[in-house]
């Protein structure tokens, strides 16, 4: 069980949270202009990083707010959590 620090509520157990997958995926400005390949890339292709990964979580059973985390997917070490509006911490690349 991970111990996750919600930026609003502090450290809570993983069961209070729900996972939201890769963070910082930008929705295309003009979806109509995309071809099928580009649209599929936006929808489905993922980094699936082994190592430090920027990901989204929602504190579902708490404040119900979304936030981002930088977590090492091999060791499960959470390097930082930060609000949706904030930039990822230095050193944690997408």
């Amino acid at each position: 069980m991970l111990l996750i620090k919600c930026p609003w509520c502090g450290e809570r157990e993983e069961i209070e949270f729900h996972y939201g997958g890769e963070a910082h995926i930008v929705r295309p400005e003009d979806p109509d202009a995309l071809d099928d390949k580009q649209w599929a890339d936006y929808l489905f292709a993922t980094a699936n990083t082994k190592g430090v990964f920027l990901e989204r979580w929602v504190h579902e059973s708490g404040c119900r707010r979304w936030f981002n985390a930088a977590r090492n997917t091999t060791t499960n070490e959470i390097l930082a959590t930060y609000k949706m509006s904030e930039k990822p911490p230095a050193g944690a690349k997408k």
Partner: peptide, 13 residues
């Protein structure tokens, strides 16, 4: 486990 992981171990919950 709901999250991406390469640790070959899952959560106890």
């Amino acid at each position: 486990d709901g999250h991406i992981g390469y640790s070959q171990r899952g959560g106890l919950h």
